[in-house]
Structures are given as structure tokens and as C-alpha cells.
């Protein structure tokens, strides 16, 4: 079931995505974690360049940058909440999450599919130019008694070779 949404719903969901992005840019992982559903599936596969003719896959599972459930996500967040425990964010990066092209459709009584684009600019200590990675997101977002929660996020990155030593942040 997919149906269009009201102006109010569109505004609510857009605001959720904007506020969520703001938390990530602030490294506010305590508050961001509260937006995650217990049945979270957070997945960012690697892109492939294939020719239509003769296209085939390597392996039966595939390769991801991220493939997390709520347990593994909490381990990551616990590291990031305590910067002393992770070299990559001991000194906080400057982050800017830019959200655009928000499209919302209703897929069940309390769940929405939200498509959006995400561009993350990140600058580290002594780095002259930010590292910019962008992607196209498809989210499943659930309305609950305590507000919206992110249930699924699938990101198609527009970069196959990541020009960075690490990605210790989220999209």
C-alpha cells in the first residue's frame, strides 16, 4: 500500500529528517540513538560499475560499507559518544549533513517511506578541503507514541572509491 501524504505529514517527516541530520552534524549520538527503532536495519552497500551485457555479481552476499542492526549500531554509538575510545573521532570532525529532495509516501497505517538525498561534508584537523560524500537514501520511518523512529535506511552512495581514511559517521 502506497499513498500520497497530506501537507502536514510531509512537513512532519521533512522536519524529522532535518532534525535528525542536525543531530548527526552535532555529533549528538545520545539523542540520535533515541530516534532508532529496535528493529533497525541500516545498510549502505558499495556501488558497482557494470555493463548491461554480461553483468554478474561477485559472491552471494555482496559488500557493504554499513550493515547494522540496533545492537551493532549501539556499539558504534557507544564508541562515538566517548571520543577517547576512538582515534578517528578523538578530535571531533567538522560535519555538515545536507538533506534534500525529500519525497514521502505512506506505506502502512503508521509507516512512511521517505526518499531523500544526503550530502555530508567532513573536515578533520589540518585538512584543507572537506571530504564530501553524497548518496540517495530510502528510509522507512515509523510514527510511534514517542515520535518518529528510523526503522530502515538504505543509502546508494555516489562514490565507489571512498577518498577518505575512514567513515566514522553516518548518512
Amino acid at each position: 500500500m502506497t499513498s500520497t501524504v497530506s501537507e502536514t505529514e510531509y512537513r512532519e517527516l521533512s522536519n524529522f529528517l532535518f532534525a535528525e541530520a542536525d543531530l548527526l552534524s552535532d555529533h549528538n549520538y545520545v539523542e540520535w540513538e533515541k530516534l532508532l527503532a529496535e528493529d533497525l536495519h541500516y545498510k549502505i552497500p558499495i556501488p558497482q560499475f557494470l555493463e548491461q551485457k554480461g553483468a554478474r555479481q561477485i559472491g552471494t552476499i555482496g559488500t557493504d560499507n554499513y550493515n547494522d542492526n540496533i545492537d551493532s549500531m549501539r556499539i558504534r554509538l557507544n564508541l562515538l559518544k566517548n571520543p577517547a575510545t576512538t582515534t578517528s573521532e578523538r578530535v571531533r570532525s567538522l560535519l555538515n549533513h545536507v538533506v534534500g529532495n525529500v519525497l514521502v509516501s505512506k506505506v502502512s497505517d503508521n509507516e512512511y517511506e521517505c526518499k531523500s538525498t544526503i550530502t555530508v561534508h567532513r573536515t578533520r584537523f589540518n585538512q584543507k578541503h572537506p571530504t564530501t560524500i553524497s548518496g540517495r537514501r530510502t528510509d522507512l520511518i515509523r510514527r510511534t507514541d514517542i515520535g518518529f523512529q528510523l526503522v530502515k535506511r538504505h543509502v546508494k552512495l555516489t562514490q565507489a572509491i571512498l577518498m577518505t581514511s575512514n567513515v566514522s559517521y553516518f548518512f
Binding site: 549502505i44 560499507n65 550493515n67 582515534t87 578517528s88 577518505t164
Partner: peptide, 16 residues
């Protein structure tokens, strides 16, 4: 994926 990749909890610190 969660350990030895650029987004992995081990690798991200090595490269640093």
C-alpha cells in the same frame, strides 16, 4: 564489515 573496512570499528582508527 563492522570491523575491517573504512566504516569498521577497527580499521577506522588504524588509518588515522
Amino acid at each position: 564489515v563492522r570491523t575491517f573496512t573504512p566504516c569498521g570499528t577497527f580499521d577506522q582508527d588504524d588509518a588515522e
